[in-house]
């Protein structure tokens, strides 16, 4: 492996190209410069068709439950369980309109609340976790291994036993029923998952790069800002995507820390469609679940573009 690292480091033409988000980023498409003979081409084509067929079939299996949910969201409440087939007999949009207005506030209210928390959390995690990760990945300091262990330990305790002390703490700070208990911890890098994630990615960046930068007089802040962050786009994108999705879906802490209906978020709102002791609006639940999937899905589509902007496309070859 080490002989590979000593190979050429040049700025190639791809650096001048805009980072691509298409399926086949230019410059990375063809690793084998020689053209294939025709027979192999045909075989490759057949192989590719088979591959796609397999991937599509697999995709259907993956998606079946979601398709069922979409289908059910167009059925009247009473028919969801009586006629559980995939194709609704008649399309009924009332679950969407009813569900949207069923709670004290229109559903958009909860979407906005969730969006605020998600935005704060994403920014917080990106900043605070990457800072901490840089320290663990690149700096030598006393007790590094111990602190690293402490960091990992902090995600090994189930939330159910820390939520009560947390509630006491936040209620002493008068933070209950605000978004602060949900956002401030992210600004303080309490999501150790992402620190560890970024440590792993930072360590994957050749150390020669920052050593060279150090020789050029760059300090750690500059290396962090101008070298590590740009070269870790996949890790940052992963962090952003996951923070988005997990915060968006996080039910328990939002339930506990937000007490007033005007502060409620999407997961709490969704739960209120179903009550195991009384009447449930399954149709509305499915409809609003789909509505609430849209933002996360868009976030994922958007975020995954950045997954391809790794070291491979930023110019180092």
């Amino acid at each position: 492996m080490t002989d590979a690292t000593t190979s050429t480091q040049t700025v190639t033409t791809t650096a001048a190209l805009p980072p691509s988000d298409s399926d086949v980023p230019p410059g990375t498409e063809d690793r084998r410069p020689t053209a294939r003979p025709r027979g192999r081409q045909v075989r490759a084509k057949v192989g590719s068709v088979l591959k796609h067929a397999g991937l599509i079939a697999f995709g259907f299996v993956m998606l079946y439950p979601l398709l069922w949910m979409v289908a059910s969201s167009f059925k009247p409440n009473a028919l969801i369980f009586r006629e559980p087939g995939l194709i609704p007999t008649d399309i009924d949009l009332s679950n969407y309109t009813d569900g949207w207005n069923a709670l004290l506030h229109p559903f958009s209210h909860y979407l906005i609340n969730s969006a605020i928390i998600v935005l704060g959390s994403v920014l917080g995690n990106l900043l605070s976790c990457s800072l901490a990760a840089y320290a663990f990945a690149r700096l030598e300091f006393k007790g590094k291994r111990l602190w690293f262990a402490v960091m990992l330990m902090s995600i090994m305790l189930p939330i159910h036993v820390v939520i009560v002390p947390q509630y006491v703490l936040f209620s002493q700070l008068e933070w209950i029923n605000t978004f602060l208990p949900l956002i401030v911890p992210k600004l303080l890098a309490t999501d150790a998952f992402f620190i560890f994630l970024m440590v792993q990615f930072f360590r994957g960046i050749p150390r020669e790069l920052d050593e060279a930068a150090t020789l050029d007089g760059a300090n750690h802040l500059r290396i962090y800002l101008q070298l590590m962050l740009p070269l870790s786009m996949p890790a940052l994108a992963t962090t952003a995507i996951f923070t988005f999705i997990w915060t968006w879906n996080d039910f328990f802490s939002q339930l506990i820390f937000l007490t007033r209906p005007e502060m409620y978020t999407v997961p709490i709102a969704l739960r209120t469609f179903v009550d195991s002791t009384g009447n449930s609006s399954w149709g509305s639940l499915f409809a609003m679940s789909i509505v609430s999937l849209i933002p996360v899905f868009i976030a994922f589509l958007f975020g995954q573009k950045y997954l391809v902007k790794g070291i491979a496309t930023t110019g180092i070859k």
């Binding site: 009560v164 509630y167 006491v168 209620s171 209950i176 328990f252 339930l255 209120t272 195991s276 002791t277």
Partner: peptide, 23 residues
């Protein structure tokens, strides 16, 4: 009157927690 509602399962978690914190 400030409303404070949720589904059945969440209700008891939330109530116990708020009682524990004196809230």
């Amino acid at each position: 009157v400030v409303p404070d509602f949720t589904d059945w399962d969440g209700y008891w978690d939330k109530l116990a927690t708020s009682v524990a914190a004196g809230d």
